[in-house]
Design a protein around this nucleic acid. Sequence first.
DNA 1: AAATTGTTTTAGTCTCGGCTAAATCGCTCG
DNA 2: CGAGCGATTTAGCCGAGACTAAAACAATTT
Lengths: 228, 228
Amino acid sequence: MISHAVEDYLKAIYELAETTGKVSTSALAERLRVQPGSVTGMLQKLAEGQEGQPPLVNYERHKGVTLTRAGRKIALEVIRHHRLIELYLSTALGYDWDQVDAEAEKLEHVISEEFEDRISAMLGHPTHDPHGDPIPAKDGSVSPHSQVPLSDVDAGQSARVARVRDDDPALLRYLGELGLVPGALLTVTDRAPFNGPIHVRVSGGDDAPSHALGREVTDKVFVDETGS
Amino acid sequence: MISHAVEDYLKAIYELAETTGKVSTSALAERLRVQPGSVTGMLQKLAEGQEGQPPLVNYERHKGVTLTRAGRKIALEVIRHHRLIELYLSTALGYDWDQVDAEAEKLEHVISEEFEDRISAMLGHPTHDPHGDPIPAKDGSVSPHSQVPLSDVDAGQSARVARVRDDDPALLRYLGELGLVPGALLTVTDRAPFNGPIHVRVSGGDDAPSHALGREVTDKVFVDETGS
DNA sequence: AAATTGTTTTAGTCTCGGCTAAATCGCTCG
DNA sequence: CGAGCGATTTAGCCGAGACTAAAACAATTT
Ligand SMILES: [Mn+2]
Ligand SMILES: [Mn+2]
Ligand SMILES: [Mn+2]
Ligand SMILES: [Mn+2]
């Protein structure tokens, strides 16, 4: 049986690899809020593989860690749980989108296949969570993460919000107020020089107000460009 | 922080006390599927009380265990979670009533106050779970368990099903097929002598078929008598 | 090339909650 | 009353998964 702790390690490795490429001991330690020594210990165990079971990670001292096929399978199952639960909480139970992550973090480890299937069906087998992250399918396929940050959109361009980083509830509340949620249309009306604020008008008519957003915000909003 | 294990011990003590009066080490061991020695160890710890916190049980070697006020409070919170979740799963997600217990057993330990409040509101602040067990209120009040077993109903009497023991999925499925669910009206049409089977007609018209039920079944169905 | 610095690993310890096997307790029955 | 027996407790152990402090390593800077 796979413990909650192991599930969280595998998920963290997957997600760090996806956003940062390399996965270091210290990055894992920080994300899991655990001391580096604890991470090393766990990685050694995961790389060993439980009696009979295949190892869950590839690990060589001082060289970072990657998931094996078996490890990735588990990571994707947990992530599927997490994102389905997030969407369910927000859709079916009326949670705010900045509160779903904490709850999903615990529920993801305990729900049954049955529960997973029922909420997935109830939601119409959705493909994306409330923050725009793709929900892995049961067969392990995942649609690609949207990669273009709002920071890279030129003045005059229009784009559709595809995804926002979901790790900061305060930021999520702010984005929610602005209407910068996945699916929203926006136009970059102006860009101040020297990496200054980016002015963005959110959907609605041309008379909608435009907001000046700092780098810290625009780095965490990802869009699909839709032309000028 | 209170661990899942401790929550399960407190819940088990509460429920055993409710149905059996006395709570012995071996009864706990059996119910929690753990060796007696493990139970003794845990009871000693619970009776100690964590640094600063009050003890959760009263325990004297060889004399059984009871909950303290603090212990009962926690037990009731967990039971409230359990029963709300059971009802939610069956009402909102379409679970069969024989499958809700296993899922609730895990979810009860991880849901937040927020989750509890939302599902309670969504269900209209219900007072009973799908098996007829009372859902403790947030203030810790619990309506009394229905105590009259169907085994004790005389021939000719009518009664309403109030509660069924929820620990055996196979029995639950059988009762479900018969329509012997909380709220159902029944009439005992006949009782065979020498503790023989009890013949029961379930609600509907007088032409509804009557079923012969053995002791094992009638001991696990509790009713409110409604006269002849 | 050596020294410094930051990262990672090792070594040793702790708590939790199980386990088994052996001792002890308390009760009943001859 | 004492033997026997079932229930309970003790004693010693284990694995998970954390922690701290010290050692080792890798990457940089001098
Ligand atoms: Mn988690
Ligand atoms: Mn998310
Ligand atoms: Mn439980
Ligand atoms: Mn129940």
